[in-house]
Design a protein around this nucleic acid. Sequence first.
DNA 1: GCGACAG
DNA 2: ATCTTGTCGC
Length: 210
Amino acid sequence: MTPEEAVAEQERLRAFVRTETDPGFAVRHVAGLDVAYADDDRVVGAVVVLDAVTLETVDTAVVAGVADFPYVPGLFAFRELPTLLEALDRLTVRPDLLVCDGQGLAHPRRFGLACHIGVLTDLPSVGVAKTPMGHFEMPADARGAGTDLVDDGEVVGRALRTRAGVKPVFVSVGHRIDLDRACAEVLRLCSVRLPETTRRADALGRAHLR
DNA sequence: GCGACAG
DNA sequence: ATCTTGTCGC
């Protein structure tokens, strides 16, 4: 697939993104997704499913692969999608929410990794990025504080302070969830800066790199 | 033309 | 993404 085709794919699929939370939506199992990179072009996609209440790991899946798509800001998903989708397919426990390591709607074409995975799996998803793709107002230095990420007059996400004294994370809707709920779910998963889901998937992925 | 630009 | 343990500070 060429970068041009990838862009066309994003513009085709973005019409399927839903920003509403289903009535009665409840998170019993939350999944964390992350990809670890080796020195060469080898990659490892890792997914960890946690009990949303106890944060106990109830399921995991790891898939090794090769990064066949170059890293291009805005097309980042095409590098991680293959291995992550395969890992999700191997899960025994079906997650109620996917927490992705990257942007959702806070993306140049409103279709970051979280939206892409959400739409393809039709599962609620949220993107939690460590770096913003545009300008943002620094939120107050208190856990839970946040400022809207605005692009073209539209709110596309939120700079969320998950812990006082550390840089905020950038939360945006992926699929089938609203921004407020997305932030609330992310905050529940954070005792430190990043969500426990992301941390555990990250650890699992790099462990399998050896 | 020159920067910006998730992981 | 990755190279990387301890250390300084609240």
